[in-house]
Nucleic acid binder design. Structure first.
Lengths: 353, 353
DNA sequence: GCCCTTGTTTCCAACGTTATACAAGATGCC
DNA sequence: GGCATCTTGTATAACGTTGGAAACAAGGGC
């Protein structure tokens, strides 16, 4: 049933290697021979066995992308971009989702797909530095997202502090002074991350506006439901902010839903800024002002990092040192801060390295 | 650098096969031998080369899922479910997106990942029956979604006609009589699919309500933007329906945005029903009534079909004949038809085979 | 006409794993 | 104690491919 090079070779009356040469477009094959072999290939319907090729070549042409949750449109959109960029480099993407569990993230980073994937793009949530330090797999790894590890791996993230500050500054410029932050981590002591919260604090400090703890609300995760719960909690606690800066768009949209249920108008009563610029934020009854990371750039940088390092490995060059790469971002101003009638976008900070 | 069975065997002073036996938990290994080999494995940090294993075993444990677009939350959510179910069967999922292009879909169905994937779950959009008929790859294939091909492949889809009828019936029950359909295909002559439109027609016919052509609007794709454009077109044409049944939730939400911009209230002026029950539909200013296909069941049936056929192939049994599988659906009634205050869900039709 | 060069095809050996067949050692039975 | 039986470990051959070396054919220069 299965047809291999050997079968084609017999049919064409040549050696296996000649067939292989034809398949791989090896230059020194006479046209006559090429057509003869090609006919045998067509007649038998030969398809190369990629697994065997991979074994022989030592690489598979597959890179993995591991994100916390595909249900989150940000990651889905990013995944789409990564798949496209990878295809341009003739790589295929194997998608994993870790559900944000530390165990899953460790498993993935340790390379449990040993020798099936050539490289890995990981967007970690719970992974700890020591987990990564213990990594033995030699496949190139790139880290995505807010957390920093200070380990010799390329790290790709927009300047989260600058982005958060731009968002908060926008709200301050509009005259808002009681700006809540939605989506802090429960265990705020552990986290070395959450630059967005730091950005919020920094910008408020610069304007001399007190950063009240009561205006910071923690969430379990960062989806619609978490946003709704957090917003309800905030309002129930007696706080009435005049603006909300949410960890991401899902939280922002979940929060806006609660505002709407309670008769609070956006942006008149409460202005809202999100983060991620998912498609959804452009189509609500009130479109969402949000920080738009350059997803295309993120995808491009991530794939190029992995592919570049693979090339170095292959040529036995010394790989270039690991880098912090900062794609650009934009603050997209929409109705949730400006109200109906205006919608605009400003160029952001952060250079695309 | 790389450590193989051979290295471990040398270190432990045993044969390669013995190490292999230990790695694979082959029963007839004395405990003493097992620990000795295990120590060598640990010391050298051996990881099996899965590519070699795949070549030897003839299967990879990878199935591909090809969907039109990951940016569409329906497919992203479905993909998440498929990944989880596949993991339970010890399969990994390779995700492709075809962008709804026929060429891409042909490529995928022809098995361009030859021998890398054991099976394929494909959600086609433009693929034609003749493309599939010409398929030579022998990897099991399952088809997902609205289109029917009448070819010997398992096909998994909810009863789209019944689902559409349930949606339209719901609107009729609420007293609506001018019910627009948003999201027909441009080339309505070609399409053998679009059961949702047929369902719309059928239910209207049953109630003696004329199915006006002017109330059917075609779209290029089926995302937010297409919905907005279509709704604007409909309204600009002078039609003012009292309800809209959209091809999917994205179209419905895009349409609602336009209604909101034009001062039309949902559901007072226009009631809206979508299709897919994506998360987004639960968190808008007006939550969306929608047909909720049982995504878990779809994912389960799809994976089980592929895995089952792989098992048959392996045991050289004759595979069972191809089937039409109909997972269940639910009509989830929310504010876009009922208004604020009530939200409910009714059990749907369609048996889970 | 011969040798050398160039160009084309073939042979062989891997890549790392597992299946099969077999050898060797231990045990049980008469 | 010898023979059959069972247990445990080993050698060898694949799986399908590609890279390198070697073999072969043809063409050209002297």
């Amino acid at each position: 049933m299965r047809v291999s090079l050997k079968d084609v070779a017999e049919r064409a009356g040549v050696s296996i290697k000649t067939v292989s040469n034809v398949v791989n477009n090896y230059p020194h094959v006479t046209p006559a021979m090429r057509t003869r072999v090609q006919r045998a290939i067509d007649e038998l319907g030969y398809r190369p066995n990629l697994t065997a090729r991979h074994l022989r070549k030592g690489r598979t042409g597959i890179i993995a992308l591991a994100v916390p949750e595909l249900g989150n449109p940000y990651f889905a959109e990013l995944a789409g971009a990564v798949i496209d960029v990878a295809a341009q480099h003739e790589y295929t993407v194997l998608l994993d989702h870790t559900q944000g569990s530390r165990e899953q993230e460790i498993l993935v980073s340790q390379g449990f797909r040993s020798r099936v994937i050539d490289g890995l793009i990981l967007s970690p949530l719970e992974l700890e530095p020591e987990d990564l330090a213990a990594r033995t797999d030699d496949a190139p790894l790139v880290l995505l997202g807010e957390r920093r590890y200070d380990l010799p791996y390329d790290h790709i993230a927009i300047d989260n502090i600058a982005a958060a500050r731009a968002a908060v500054r926008h709200l301050l410029t509009l005259g808002r002074r009681r700006i809540a932050f939605l989506g802090a981590r429960q265990d705020r002591t552990v986290q070395p991350a959450h630059l967005r919260l730091l950005g919020w604090q920094a910008e408020l400090a610069e304007w001399g506006v007190p950063a009240e703890d009561a205006l910071v609300t923690a969430t379990g995760g960062w989806d619609h439901e978490d946003g709704s719960v957090a917003m309800a909690k905030l309002l129930d606690s007696g706080q009435l902010p005049d603006a909300v800066f949410a960890y991401n768009d899902l939280v922002a949209i979940g929060a806006m839903r609660v505002m709407s249920e309670r008769g609070l108008k956006v942006p008149e009563d409460i202005a809202v800024v999100g983060f991620d610029d998912i498609t959804e934020s452009r189509y609500g009854a009130v479109t969402l002002t949000t920080v738009a990371p350059d997803k295309q750039a993120i995808a491009r940088l991530a794939v190029e990092s992995v592919v570049g390092r693979l090339k170095s490995q292959q040529n036995e060059e010394t790989p270039r040192p690991s880098q912090e790469l900062q794609p650009g971002f934009t603050l997209v101003e929409r109705e949730s801060t400006l109200g109906r009638g205006a919608s605009n976008s400003l160029p952001g900070h952060g250079a695309t390295t």
